[in-house]
Amino acid sequence: MKNINDIQDEIVEEFSFLQDDLDMCVEYLIELGIKNKQLSDEFRTEENIVKGCQSKVWMVANYHQGAIEYKADSNTLITMGLVGMLLRVFSGQKPQDILNSDLYFINKIGMNRFIGTQRSNGFAAMIKQMKLYALAYLTKEDVKSESS
């Protein structure tokens, strides 16, 4: 399993091949968006909505053998592409690593071009939601180990 920074470096490298061409970057996000649409209708509920996003984003998480698996969906493809990058970085990682992570790839690939200043709050909300899941599972683990 690659660690969070290995995956971030991969994304940065992939973006460097796109040579700063916004059209190609958008195409990359759309591909990622289509590939990562994983949630069936039953999970697209009010309680799974990530609050603070301009586009609708639904997210769920499962904890299995010490790692978190995230799944998500969005009503817009490009947002789904952005979420797809976060899924790639965080899914399958340990809660503690997710909480400690520094997402430097966001600045390195110039994410602001896609999300703009107005939407950056929404992107921050997605990251916060993913870290909250990590915190919740970590706390659960702590409680379990203390009681055993």
Binding site: D23, V26, S55, N75, T76, I78, T79
Partner: peptide, 13 residues
Amino acid sequence: IHHFDLGIMLDAK
């Protein structure tokens, strides 16, 4: 097609 996707894809052009 969501209007948000269209807006960003047109901007790229």
